[in-house]
Design a binder for these strands. Structure first.
Lengths: 166, 166
DNA sequence: TATTGTTATACTCTATAACTATA
DNA sequence: TATAGTTATAGAGTATAACAATA
């Protein structure tokens, strides 16, 4: 077996992306859990609700799309947030199947406290890169994300054909 | 609330990294599950064992370090791999606490089949970037990884001090 | 019939602690 | 006492399916 035939896991992009994202998520998750007793999915829901005007609200489906959390998990995270009195939910006026979810005053307070924390953590992480490098990373990661979405959207047989192993 | 005070989740690096890594992992996980009935942690263990010479072996602790999977999860993934007859484990000769884990012939066959699949998938993903851009991404992500590790290694109080919110 | 959302099930991940065997 | 590894427990993530209410 020659040198280049050995598979180096730590040079493999799916692995590297997972290790980095997991380390970042876990560090942030610990911060949020310690200070606000909320999980990452709960934080993401608060984050999208916090951007709304006072009279606005989102449905579960909209929250799912905006947070990349699936419907079932949104439903469960919302149950916890309701229990903690951080969100309220009403019923859609025209379509009574849809929920109208928004932050309570208590939820808004958490939002206002957690956003500076999220930004400060991100700033600390990104000190590793110069501003121009951050823009480069932004561009490259956006293209990778688009490619990953394109591959994931294919039927399984087409993925198999694409990677030439069927 | 002015425009820039609104927190945009989809511009937040911890979120972006997580979404990308998760999408990639899930797509790959489905491929591996369909063809080899193995999970991502199992694949990673096979990947590091596959790089060994015939007479070499790794301990559980070494596997844990090389795969970024914690001891407990390594133990459980190894139990599944033993059950599937993909690995064997002996006992260290000098230190009988340590395991000596290596691939079975069947495990080596899986390794030889799955590595081209992993490489082909990665190649498809990385078609989004030109070779020079891949090198740039490599460099930037390595620096981010180092910074994330540096932050995660700090005691909680120091992280709090670092992000100036205590 | 299709969609919104909840509930059920099952498996994996993650973290912690307790435990054993050995050093 | 410390380390390698396993087992137990519990909370959270993930995927699927079934279901109720509504459209």
């Amino acid at each position: 077996m020659t040198e280049q035939d050995i598979f180096a896991l730590n040079r493999h992009w799916p692995y590297r992306l997972h290790v980095l994202a997991t380390l970042v998520s876990q560090t942030v998750a610990t911060l949020y859990a310690d200070r606000f007793s909320i999980t990452i999915p709960e934080w993401r829901i608060i984050a999208v609700l916090g951007g709304l005007d006072e009279d606005e609200a989102l449905s579960g489906t909209a929250i799912s799309a905006l947070t990349a959390i699936d419907r079932v998990q949104v439903s469960r995270a919302m149950a916890r947030l309701l229990d903690a009195d951080l969100i309220v939910r009403g019923t859609g006026q025209t379509d009574r199947r849809t929920a109208r979810v928004s932050l309570t005053p208590k939820g808004r307070t958490v939002y206002q406290q957690i956003v500076p924390l999220a930004r400060a953590f991100e700033a600390q992480l990104m000190t590793a890169l110069a501003p121009a490098e951050r823009e480069t990373l932004d561009r490259l990661v956006s293209r990778l994300q688009a490619q990953a979405e394109a591959i994931a959207a294919l039927p399984k047989e087409e993925i198999a054909a694409l990677i030439g192993t069927d």
